[in-house]
Design a protein around this nucleic acid. Structure first.
Lengths: 141, 141
DNA sequence: CTGCTCGTGAGAATGATTGTCATGACGCTC
DNA sequence: GAGCGTCATGACAATCATTCTCACGAGCAG
């Protein structure tokens, strides 16, 4: 029964370092496949399965944020804030802004409690058009 | 370039009626496959592809709510409120409560605007343990 | 250095969802 | 009620993201 911290048990592999390095250069959410392609383009030789495995491990240890897209694809991003926060994502260019909203958190928890729910958790993501893609002239839909 | 409303063009098929009927008897979110199995168990003969197609059509016309589970699977539910609303879902039994939170909506929109985002939309789902599954002794984490 | 184990890689396997296409069912007209 | 154009259906193949398998190589402790 090894309690808690097993981060010391992880080995330091070239591949994991490369994945983190690649992520640190991305600003928006990317799929595992996109990240893999990016790495190949950068001359890194890393297997796709390895990318998947590491993204999983990293997100589990909160070093990465996961966002499930509308079509069910998982998107990853290395966030500045390692604590609980939400995202404001431009649906045109993927530009992402992190934000905190303690009032929202509390309000949601309150609502949950009103209905007798405990141990509350939630997913909240906001999508919109960033200033560079505000609809004014060029409509893409 | 056929504009807008083609909802009048949909035909009334036995299959679609059966799917709606099945959904109306469910209280929680179910996957397309689960719905298909349920129907088979009820003696309905409907193809899986047909179930998928109809769930899509119905959700597109807002007669059904879709919830993308953590693993990317799409879950469907017939909600009482046909307008914009959110869900409070018990992560143990799937029991679902619908709720409105206009304050949250406004707050989120405000935050988005502060960052220059427009045409804002969002996804918000709350997960917890309902009164029947409140943790009192048995900790699952 | 030596060995134990975990991480990796290539490809197969899985599982949900979508595409294909011939046949059947709707709803309309006569 | 029959005929007809069209959309919907069903069986199965195809796709796509993700996970599994398993032999091999690379960290790291002794």
């Amino acid at each position: 029964m090894t309690v808690g911290d097993n981060s010391g048990m992880q080995r330091n592999t070239r591949q994991r370092a490369a994945i983190l390095e690649t992520l640190s250069r991305q600003d928006d959410f990317r799929s595992a496949q996109q990240i893999h392609e990016q790495m190949k383009a950068d001359g890194e030789t890393v297997g796709l399965a390895t990318v998947y495995r590491n993204l999983q491990v990293l997100s589990r240890s909160d070093r990465l944020d996961v966002l499930v897209a509308g079509d069910g694809e998982a998107l990853y991003r290395q966030c500045e804030d390692t604590g609980h926060h939400h995202h404001l994502v431009c649906r045109e260019c993927g530009r992402t802004v992190e934000f905190l909203a303690p009032k929202l958190e509390n309000a949601m928890t309150a609502i949950a409690h009103e209905h007798g729910f405990t141990d509350v958790d939630h997913t909240l993501e906001v999508f919109g058009l960033c200033s560079d893609h505000a609809e004014g002239g060029v409509e893409t839909r």
